[in-house]
Design a protein around this nucleic acid. Sequence first.
DNA 1: CTAACGATTCGCT
DNA 2: GCGAATCGTTAGT
Length: 194
Amino acid sequence: MHTPNPLPLSFYQHHDVVYLAKTLLGKVLLTHIDGHLTGGPIIETEAYWGVEDRACHAYGGRRTKRTEVMFRKGGIAYVFLIYGLHSCFNIVTHCEGHPHAVLIRAIKPTIGIETMLQRRNKIKLDKTLTSGPGSTAQALKITTALTGIPLDRPPIWLEDRGIQVKKFEATPRIGVDYAGEDARLPWRFVAEIA
DNA sequence: CTAACGATTCGCT
DNA sequence: GCGAATCGTTAGT
């Protein structure tokens, strides 16, 4: 059995969530759930800049049962349900009281492909297996029940396996048209990896 | 309590 | 390209 080599919680406590969203590209996201190891390198992220960011769930200091975990110290999971159907997995960053987070939008499916195909009701491997936040969370079996858990150990953790990001693109974030000016910020990052 | 809607996905046209 | 699926969260009564 593979031994986890997780990034430490301190990694996520950097004050600049945009820097972290870029730096997370190429890091390997892993889950070990129901006895299955699944994961792959992160290839798409979005940064959400706390109370100042109109696109962020915690904008203006909005503190509710759902957003509460965003206010905790960085290094934990923020998982929410969207459209009553799909889970979105985020990494809470920065320190306590600063509700910043990185949304994991896509990974390259490389580890536990058979399990991920089953969870996604798919037959053939292609990039659509883990190509958006909902599908990535489903393939990894990350659900809202896991919100708030630390990310330096199973069932969810990240590793630096030295994967090279050849180049990456910065674009506006997806589906945040309600955010006015902030909808145009180039805080979505899409990587090309080796 | 009620009602509108969302950091999406998939199938059909 | 368009719209349905489907329900917890949110804000307002």
